[in-house]
Amino acid sequence: MTMLSGQARLSVAVIGAGAVGGVAAAAMHEAGHEVSVCVRTPFEVLVIQTADGEKRVPVRVITDPGDAKPVDWVLLAVKAFDTPGTADWLASLCDRETTVVVLQNGIDQAAEVGGLVPGTTVLPALVYIQAERLAPGRIRLGYGNRLDAPNGPVAERLVRLFQDSGMEVSLQADMITAAWRKLMLNAAVNPLTALTLRRMEVMRDPLVRALAEGLMTETLAVAVAAGAALTEEDMQQTLEFMAEFSDGNGTSMLYDRLAGNPLEWQALNGAVVRHAEAHGIDVPLNRTMTALIHAVSPRDPAAVVSRDTLLAG
């Protein structure tokens, strides 16, 4: 371990080089750490494209878990439904000194990851980055440079890890509320952009905005039942935040549908439905979004939702 200006140079492995993984890997390189990117499809150099031009980021690319060794930090940046497929990577990259940061949508992901790496520290994080994977190793970064993590000693180490990276780590005293606040937005904008095949300009349509508000209202009710300290005012602020997105920006689910990839309904509207059932709350709009996104997603045997779940209520 060598020293940078004021901090240690650490070994960091990023599992997944999609939009979030690519941006996170670039941030780790900017901070001066030793960065490896673990992927299925190799590429020669990581390129981050912004409005100011392109930045080429030299990282080590690994395609075989057998070539990986334990590192100080793992940033897990695959979609939630791909988590089981990272088991071999995690086994190679983790020991008891490793910290795994889960950079995924949803509210339940850290528990699943923890089951794959017993004895390893696992930290959930909320990602506020608008980016799009254009090709293997090529990412278009629109805006956003923030991660939210639960306040505590592990997250304080995460802040130091990202020092001088250009990315902010915000510590949250109430991670449950923070996670549900983000899900309240994602459960609306992700399916509505993916189903209409339109970017954020679609949210200016009065009928679509009304549907988004209905989805958020249902999610708010479930969030409160699950222990989140959210109110009607929070929902209105989320609607206002949604309106600030520029027309050219899309969502991760839209980008996945355009690319022909599986869609992340389980961690978004599917999560609202699961928690609603646990609390006896009816969420017909979220059940509808779950059914429709499931229907248009490329078939994935691990992503088949039961008829009872879709029709419950």
Rank of each mutant, 00 (worst) to 15 (best):
G53F: 08
F241K: 15
T309P: 00
G115I: 00
L192E: 04
E156M: 11
S36N: 04
P118T: 09
D205C: 10
E112L: 13
F162G: 06
P206S: 10
I176Q: 02
V222N: 14
V23Y: 13
A87L: 03
R257G: 06
H279G: 08
A77E: 05
Q104A: 02
R157T: 00
V14C: 07
L311P: 04
P118L: 08
L239I: 14
A27P: 07
Q49A: 08
D148S: 10
A187N: 12
G22F: 04
V169C: 03
S306V: 11
G313E: 10
V61A: 12
H279T: 13
P136A: 06
P70R: 02
A194N: 08
E244L: 15
E240T: 14
A312G: 13
G260H: 05
H275V: 00
L263V: 12
L158P: 03
T196I: 01
A25V: 03
E156F: 02
G22A: 10
L161S: 07
A229N: 14
E97F: 06
A149I: 06
Q237M: 14
Y255R: 04
P153I: 12
I129Q: 01
M289E: 00
L126C: 01
W73C: 05
V100T: 03
P136I: 02
V47G: 07
R198E: 12
A13W: 08
L192A: 09
V45T: 14
R204D: 12
